[in-house]
Design a protein around this nucleic acid. Structure first.
Length: 637
RNA sequence: CGGGAUGUAGCCUAGUGGCUAAGGCACCUGCUUUGGGAGCAGGAGAUCGCCGGUUCGAGUCCGGCCAUCCCGACCA
């Protein structure tokens, strides 16, 4: 490609509203342009990187036996109604109507679409196992796009879906993806860490997220400093320790009410009483929205899944959301375009059940983890309770205590609470607290569970070493879906005994744009990008200087014919401009042809990260480039 | 959706002391130049985000809206 003809222009300065360094470079080097909030245009250079990444995805998918296909971006509403997500997913799911008033959905993930396709094709165990995949655009109306390409609204994902007759088959396909994903990320030049992730309410099913560790990531993971334990913050377990000044043998003291004017928060309370926060008990009130209780009321549904054909569950979004990196959890109460009287998203069942109040009690120095709490409380989705809702249940906001709440409140205590004697809790009275509250004697909970968020320095649940906290970008995930979608959309097959059984599915996603952004973030320096050869838009960047034009033209033809993808700077620009652009664009190898070198019969070859070029005979150029691209790849990354 | 910030040419910035909106990069023409973002001369490019208000007069003051970014909520 001649740079004189390349569509897209490098910028000396990045737009002022960009914060992420890798993204600044993608903009400056003309890989990508922002079209709107969370919407991007790929320019030719960037698109070539995307295609390189997609080629790796295709190779690795085909290597584990996957077949590529394409599922539609626009889905009929019926299939989303069939799984209940039409009702349960909030305004992140974009709904619209066609000219005949048919409801349609812009696909934010493709479980429904693939299940519909599977239902139409699979009818016998002889057709299984099977693995299909596609690379497709999705739309999710995220409330807040951010960090350049990391979190966007329109995005492209590789999704694969495994279809099996039994759990053993699923396990095998899951394992293959696990290994393939490591190969994919490694080929793309980034180190990925697989962490256990939230399986929602899928009971016993497995999920992993593949994380690229970087400060710009918006996920937090915890990794043990000594053993192999690693998990997403949402599910990371950890060992509780006693506060420094407490021993197991501390005898329970006498309950005592103290005046604590204005001490509504744990911080204020600890300060007022002059005690560590770990000697206090904190209460957090959450509401399990009615639709979220669905699964609790369908105890007859297998494995806690809603029965086929039933709708109105939020479970689909909260638990299966993890099944695809492009999926969702329920956002807010805004369901569908109902505000303009165009209301396909209203669940007729909503509002029939009462909200359920969940009161979490936890030691004051710990934070409640909403995912764990939802799990422990058997709720799909939680939202913070309003003060009125707390009062209605007999609690005094800011001064609540578990013992005085009405019976219909579900009290869930963190493991830290029973093990810590003589806690300070609210007195359920404005401006008063109680000293020496002891679990079992002074209050109890309906459930004692792990509902605390792990953080830096907490102890590993497996080996007791301290945990490290890291920010990370989720570049991929794998998830054992089970049979929810199969049952909802009628994906059944006859087994060898003639019995009708649901197809067992797994889903496996990789966000392409996010992956490209992560590579850019990882492979750059002050001067610009520095792509790994495996995904670089071109292999070589040929720079023609004054007096070297003719030779460069010849070399460009030669390299191109030799199959080396070459970006050729044939512009009438000063050498400085060309070198700066070459560093910015970040192609692995730069070749410079100048008057002086032409006279010598040589060219200069410089890997992007090398400080000095090597001078080699002109006729060895192609060969040397191949060597550098082939054997010395680490030096190029 | 809460909190904060910003909107002046493709990009970066000045102008907020009220009247003809300034500079740099990029772009076009000519000449000169050619090993790390060259020089000179000329040129094109802006309904100063939009609507309304105050005023003799608004990029500038006031109100509303829109857009984008950041923090949070939320989330791949």
């Amino acid at each position: 490609m001649r740079m004189s003809e390349l569509f897209g222009q490098t910028l000396r300065e990045a737009p002022s509203n960009v914060e992420v360094e890798g993204h600044k470079l993608l903009l400056r080097a003309a890989y990508v342009r922002q079209a709107g909030a969370g919407i991007f245009t790929w320019l030719p250079l960037g698109w070539r990187v995307v295609q390189k990444v997609c080629a790796i995805l295709r190779e690795e998918m085909e290597a584990i036996g996957a077949q590529e296909m394409a599922l539609p971006v626009v889905n009929p509403a019926e299939i989303w109604r069939a799984t209940g997500r039409w009702y349960s997913v909030g305004s992140e799911l974009t709904r619209f109507r066609d000219r005949n008033d048919r409801d349609l959905v812009l696909s934010m993930t493709h479980e429904e679409a693939v299940a519909q396709a599977v239902a139409g094709e699979i009818s016998s165990y002889r057709q299984l196992p099977c693995l299909i995949y596609h690379i497709q655009t999705k739309w999710r109306d995220d409330p807040r796009p951010r960090a350049g390409l990391i979190r966007v609204r329109e995005f492209t994902m590789k999704d694969s879906y495994s279809l099996d007759v039994d759990e053993a088959g699923l396990d095998q396909q899951y394992r293959r993806h696990y290994d393939a994903y490591h190969r994919i990320f490694s080929r793309c030049g980034i180190e990925s860490v697989a962490v256990e992730s939230d399986v929602g309410m899928m009971g016993g099913k497995q999920a992993h997220e593949f994380m690229y560790l970087t400060p710009i990531g918006e996920d937090t993971i915890l990794m043990c400093s000594s053993c192999e334990f690693r998990a997403n913050r949402q599910i990371a377990r950890f060992q509780r320790t006693h506060p420094a000044d407490v021993s197991d043998s501390e005898p329970p003291g006498e309950v005592q009410e103290v005046h604590t004017p204005g001490a509504r928060t744990i911080e204020e309370l600890a300060q007022f009483l002059g005690i560590p926060q770990s000697r206090t008990a904190k209460m957090v009130f959450m509401i399990a929205d009615p639709a979220d209780d669905f699964s609790r009321e369908t105890g007859d549904a297998p494995e806690g899944y809603p029965a086929a054909g039933e709708v109105s569950s939020d479970q689909a979004s909260s638990s299966l959301g993890r099944g695809d990196a492009g999926s969702t959890r329920q956002g807010d109460s805004q369901r569908g375009p109902s505000d303009d009287g165009h209301s396909p998203g209203i669940d007729p069942a909503s509002g029939k059940r009462a909200n359920r109040l969940i009161a979490a009690i936890i030691r004051g120095d710990l934070q409640v983890n909403e995912t764990k709490l939802a799990q422990a409380g058997g709720a799909g989705e939680l939202r913070p309770a309003l003060e009125d809702e707390i009062r209605a249940a007999g609690g005094v906001p800011g001064y609540a205590t578990p013992s005085d709440l009405s019976d219909n409140v579900t009290v869930i205590a963190d493991e830290s609470v029973p093990m810590t004697p003589n806690l300070v809790s609210g007195a359920n009275k404005e401006d008063y607290h109680r000293l020496n509250m002891n679990y079992g004697r002074d209050f109890t909970a309906d459930v004692v569970a792990d509902i605390a968020s792990a953080s830096e320095g907490d102890l590993c649940p497996d080996c007791g070493a301290p945990l490290d906290e890291h920010r990370a970008v989720e570049v991929g995930n794998i998830f054992k879906l089970g049979t929810f979608y199969s049952e909802s959309l009628g994906c059944y097959f006859l087994d060898a005994n003639g019995e009708r059984r649901p197809v067992i599915m797994g889903s496996y996603g990789i966000g392409v744009g996010r992956l490209v952004a992560s590579i850019a973030e990882d492979h750059r320096d002050e001067a610009g990008l520095a792509w790994p050869a495996s995904v670089a838009p071109y292999s070589a960047h040929l720079v023609a200087l004054k007096g070297g034009e003719q030779e460069a033209e010849a070399l460009y033809r030669e390299l191109t014919e030799a199959g080396i993808e070459c970006l050729y700077d044939d512009r009438q620009e000063s050498p400085g401009t060309k070198f700066m652009d070459a560093d910015l664009i970040g192609i692995p190898i730069r070749i410079t042809v100048s008057k002086k070198r032409v006279a010598e019969g040589t060219v200069e070859i410089k890997p992007r990260r090398a400080s000095e070029p090597e001078v080699i005979p002109r006729e060895r150029a192609a060969e040397r480039i191949r060597e550098l691209l082939g054997s010395a790849q680490p030096a190029l990354t």
